[in-house]
């Protein structure tokens, strides 16, 4: 297809410039540390980080366990937020009664930052693990609810009219018009949500856990091994990137009519 080859050309152009930028960034970093520019005295170079990874972490079960644990927390928090949030958003948009009852509650709770839930969450949930998953859930939950709610409200009235002209039942209209109309909003909610869950899980781990990538990074700081701090940061970045790709892939599958 012509559009895909245009895409490939675009990608090539981008990669070329991007590669130069990344190389320059690493070089600059290396130089700043090498010449001990003020502020950089204690910062490790990228090669230090690599050798730390290579010698101590690559084969360490603890390191990979940290990946698995963080992913699990993000996974549970994110999936539960979608499973509960999407139906609640749909109900808010389609049922006036539900909207009247629930919307004020949601609007009161929504502005509270997820991390402000940490203490109460630790007090409430029986295990630390549950409280971290809960905080992660909070991070993505309100985002998806609000997005789905907006999605329902912005459904084209022409689509609903047309369906009614054809004699479609309310259930049919829900299945055939409301659900597909809302899918793009669900996708937006998912993209924003997955980013927030990583933010939240890392901070929650630093405060309230002894496992996970956030904890790994924090331990690097308290044990005065800055190379581990940067290894942790890079790992978190990679983990976030991977889960974003996963969500992007799911979104593409959800919306076959949107190409490129």
């Amino acid at each position: 297809m012509r559009s895909s080859s245009a895409f490939v050309r675009w990608r090539k152009g981008l990669n070329w410039r991007g590669a130069v930028a990344v190389a320059s960034f690493i070089l600059l970093w290396q130089l700043l540390v090498r010449f001990k520019v003020p502020g950089f005295e204690t910062i490790p170079t990228l090669s230090d980080v690599f050798s730390t990874f290579w010698t101590k972490y690559m084969l360490s079960a603890k390191y990979w366990k940290a990946w698995a644990v963080s992913f699990e927390r993000v996974g549970y928090g994110f999936v539960i937020s979608q499973v509960l949030g999407i139906p609640i958003g749909l109900l808010l948009g389609t049922r006036q009664m539900f909207h009247d009852v629930m919307f004020s509650v949601i609007e009161i709770l929504r502005p509270i930052p997820p991390l402000a839930w940490v203490p109460i969450s630790i007090l409430f949930w029986p295990t630390n693990e549950m409280s971290i998953v809960f905080i992660t859930f909070i991070g993505a939950f309100f985002i998806i609810v609000i997005n789905v709610h907006d999605g329902v409200r912005s459904i084209k009235k022409e689509h609903l009219w047309l369906a009614r002209s054809l004699g479609a039942s309310p259930w049919r209209i829900f299945q055939r018009i409301i659900i597909p109309s809302v899918i793009p909003s669900i996708a937006v909610g998912m993209t924003l949500g997955i980013a927030v869950t990583w933010n939240v899980v890392i901070a929650a781990e630093m405060i309230a856990s002894d496992t996970g990538l956030g904890r790994l990074t924090w331990e690097g700081y308290v044990s005065n091994t800055p190379a581990v701090v940067i290894l942790g940061m890079i790992s978190i970045g990679l983990a976030g990137y991977l889960s974003t790709k996963l969500v992007d892939y799911a979104e593409k599958k959800m919306m076959p009519w949107r190409k490129a």
């Binding site: 084209k156 022409e158 689509h159 047309l162 109309s181 919306m255 009519w257």
Partner: peptide, 9 residues
């Protein structure tokens, strides 16, 4: 404004 269903062929 047009009201074809964008999610269908």
């Amino acid at each position: 404004q047009g009201a074809l269903f964008p999610w269908k062929t």
